[in-house]
């Protein structure tokens, strides 16, 4: 197979784009896709400050490097979850990556905040992945708001977005279907959230990370138990194989035809948000779920120690 652009030997075949690229031309394709996403969705400008959530995986690190190379004012944010044998490795990779490329990095430690994820696993009955995700989103938003950032960027790719949309559709979850998309505008207490990799598949991001020499944290979380999204991704992998381009079409058609209808329903029936009585973060309850979980863990630990 030859490179569509320069006719050298191709290194990456992309059936969904009816093309293939060599190692030098593929990063250009990747850059164009990110530029298109930012421009068409009006995500942010070169005058704005962007906080990038960094887990240590290929997607977040590829996003951080690409935005930096495109000249954006980016700062990385890593949350150290405090999981023994796992969080220290992820953190070390993020720190090495940031140092190597001269990138600004903030690290927030769950343990110092008083709630390492092992405590959540031990003291909360709900699935640990759901609670952990909630905690991370809370802190990403809080740190972005407190730091005066204009937008919070995450490394969600097309496969992540399609798997999530598929799960939301299976449940016909009106609230989630009303605001899923590559941009969530800022509102009271919430920073603007953007997903500049939404046009790129996990395969494309993995190729970019490999070609850029990004050392990634690929060990699965020891607490993950084969989340349903992984199964959905496999199903979609089969569909995409039979009909290349279907993922992007499904997602983009939802944004154009489906989302506005769900947003209209949610405007009529959605819950009103007010500041949390304890931390001030927006919530539909008096005290937000993060503060409630924190209090529940504190209470459970005190009981166990008594």
């Amino acid at each position: 197979m030859k490179c569509t652009r320069c006719k050298a030997t191709a290194h990456v075949a992309l059936p969904s784009h009816h093309s293939g690229f060599c190692k030098d031309c593929f990063p250009l394709f990747f850059t164009r896709q990110v530029e298109t996403a930012i421009r068409r969705e009006k995500m942010f400008t070169h005058d704005e400050r962007i906080l990038v959530a960094l887990s240590g995986g290929k997607d977040s690190l590829a996003l951080m490097l690409e935005l930096h190379l495109q000249g954006y004012d980016v700062t990385g944010l890593h949350i150290d979850l405090g999981i023994p044998g796992s969080s220290d490795k992820a953190r070390a990779k993020v720190e090495r990556f940031s140092e190597k490329h001269g990138l600004k990095l903030e690290v927030f430690e769950m343990e110092k905040w008083g709630l390492p994820i092992p405590d959540v696993k031990a003291h909360v009955r709900r699935p640990v992945c759901a609670v952990c995700g909630k905690m991370k989103r809370h802190h990403f938003n809080r740190i972005a708001v407190e730091g005066g950032y204009d937008a919070l960027a995450t490394g969600h790719n097309l496969d992540d977005e399609v798997a999530r949309l598929f799960a939301n559709t299976l449940r016909w979850d009106t609230a989630y279907l009303s605001d899923q998309g590559p941009v969530l505008p800022a509102s009271d207490g919430f920073v603007r959230k953007v997903k500049p990799l939404f046009r790129l598949s996990e395969f494309e991001t993995a190729n970019y990370a490999f070609l850029k020499g990004i050392e990634i944290h690929s060990d699965p979380c020891p607490y993950a138990t084969g989340a349903s999204f992984t199964g959905h991704k496999e199903l979609w992998g089969e569909l995409e194989h039979r009909s290349p381009g279907q993922k992007l079409q499904f997602y983009q058609s939802f944004l154009k035809n489906g989302k506005p209808a769900f947003a209209a329903v949610e405007r009529e029936t959605g819950a009103e948000l007010k500041p949390c009585a304890e931390c001030g973060s927006p919530t539909s309850a008096g005290t937000c779920s993060v503060c409630r979980i924190r209090a529940a863990v504190r209470e459970s630990k005190a009981k166990a120690e008594a």
Binding site: G57, K58, D59, C129, D159, E202, F203, T205, A206, F210, S218, P220, C221, A224, G226, A227, F229, T230, K233, E234, G237
Partner: peptide, 8 residues
């Protein structure tokens, strides 16, 4: 051979 689907 590196699988690209992230777990979790």
């Amino acid at each position: 051979v590196r699988k690209v689907t992230s777990a979790g």
